[in-house]
Structure formats: C-alpha cells, structure tokens
Amino acid sequence: MTTPVSERQSPETPVDELIPSVDEAPGSRPVAWPHRHLLDVDALTIDEIETVMRTADAMRQVLARPIPKVPALRGRSVTILFYEASTRTRVSFEVGAKNLSADVVNIAAATSSVAKGESLVDTVRTIEALGADILVIRHPVSGAPYLAASVFGGSVVNGGDGWHAHPTQALLDLYTMRQRLPRGSVAGRKVVILGDVLHSRVARSNVWALTAAGADVWLCGPPTLLRGFDAWARAGAGGRRFTVTSSVVDALRDADVVMALRIQKERMTGGLLPSLREYATRYGLTRERLSLARPDAIVMHPGPMNEGVEIAPAVATGAQSVIADQVANGVAIRMALLYLLAGART
C-alpha cells in the first residue's frame, strides 16, 4: 500500500493546532471561548450562549454517570469567595468544580467585613498569590467583580453582585426553559419575571439572556419595585425591547414561563411596600393567577423561596414547577462555564 500525499491545501491554522499533543483528528476544531471572565451575560453573543448550553449538555451526561467526575480541571484551583450568604449558588459552584477535579478553596467572608478590614483588592491579590486560577465571587455591591477582575490574573466568575448581575443563574434559567419548552427554544415565548425586579440581579441578567435568545420578556411587579425599568424597556437591552407592567393579569395572560422573584422583608422598611401580606394578595403567584398563563406554562424561582408570599406552596411544588430542575441544572451550567473559562484564549 502507498500513502499518497494529499494535494489538498492544508487549512491556515496556527502552528499550535497542527501539533496536537493528543492524537487529535484534524478538522473538528470549534471556536475558542473568547472571554477571560464571566462578569455579565450582556457580554455574550447568542452563539456563545449556545456554546454554553451545548457544553452544559455534556456536563449533564457526566452528572448522570455512576461516578460523576471527570479530570478536565485537574490541577486547576478554583477559589470561591462569597461576601453574601448563599447556599445553592455556592454549593453548585463547589460541586461543579469538584466534578471537574479542580481543587476548591472556599472563603466565606462575613458581610460585615466588606466595609472594613482587608480591602477587596488586597483579598483578591492574596488569593491570586495563593495560586487560584479561577475566582468565583459574590458580593453585595454592584460591580465588585469588575474590580476583582481588574486585579486578578486568572478568570473571574460573577456569582452575583449587588443588584447588578447573576450571569450563571440567568444561563441556567435559560437552559431550564429550553429543556422544558416544546422544540427547546424560548424564541417568541412569553416569559414573565414577577416580583421585586428593582433589587434583582437575576431579573437584570435574565433580561439580557432572554432577549438575546429572542424571548418576549415581561417584567411585572409593584410600581415601586419597577422604578427605572420602563425607561430601560423602551431603550431595549442591546436594542431588543421588552415589556414592563404592574398589571399581573396583563403579564400572566398566555405566558409560557412564569418566574417569581424573592421578596425581602427589608423592602418594607424602605417604604417601598406596605406589607408582605398585601404583596402576597396583589402579586403572589397563586393557582388562580397561574391559570391565566398557558396550561403548559412552567413555573420557576431562583430561590430561596418565601412560600406563601411571592409564590404559593401549591404552585412551587406543583406539576408545572421546574424549580428542582433549576437547581440540578445549576451544577451543569457552572461546570460548563468553569470548563470553558479554563481553556479560554483571549
């Protein structure tokens, strides 16, 4: 047998790619992940969001195995720095990182130490000096992860900052919707985010992710908790419009997805709401209200829930609820993002 040397032109690819250190079959190169950090969803294109979703699919396969652990991030160090209380986000990052065989360091900084003691910049520099490759940060002040990213040599993942952004939550919400909606797409679907929009980083990041994916996004809540959003809706998120209303009926009618947001007691002292009871009466997601939505509508909640306030217990655990899926998908999405960031070339 002879081995003819091909006449075909070899593709113009960098040298690095032509010498794979594994027996890589050529021709199957995907697009590189171009972001060093994940700070907000608004920085992602719809194609990049798609890459995250497909990578999360693979992670769900891993999670379904008897041993849900792969060595992809072996030798990498992930530091989880949370300045705010959190259970599901912190744990899902930790589980996700461990499933990828990363070394995980968990730092729970007391909220009270934010304004005093070691500055965030010094803390981040210390974490870097200790060898962290990826820093997952949650912080009560909007924009804090950007400050961390400005001094950290590795990748920063925003685990939620103030009222500003919660990109991994928005991506897992989108993933969950695609999983449960017919034809696996949110395009043209009416997605209602109901509750305390003003203080919600989940709502803001979901506006970016869902409008990018082509959903018909509605924000609904008491007028005091929507302040400023009408102007944003008119200006559009990246030019894509959405709808803001205080009318629960208008919002829920024929909705495909209803996401209730947590309402916090502090909102009453701030003079924004008369009482939780009144909120539950006027804006709580009850069975009756849910019946306005399409019969196959799904119900979501980013957690933690105040059952009986923003969502009735029967709705939270009802057949339409995908809240448990959100939690499970949270691990897959976070694994996908850690994996993509670990190999990012920017």
Binding site: H164, R201, R204, R227, G228
Partner: peptide, 16 residues
C-alpha cells in the same frame, strides 16, 4: 444612593 437615577443606574443595578 450610588449613581444618578436613570437608565445607567437601572441597567448596572446601582442605587438610584
């Protein structure tokens, strides 16, 4: 309050 109440503060989640 952190930033002028307006579109920028709304989008960035800064207290108006």
């Amino acid at each position: 309050a952190e930033a002028n109440e307006g579109l920028v503060a709304t989008i960035l989640g800064l207290r108006g």
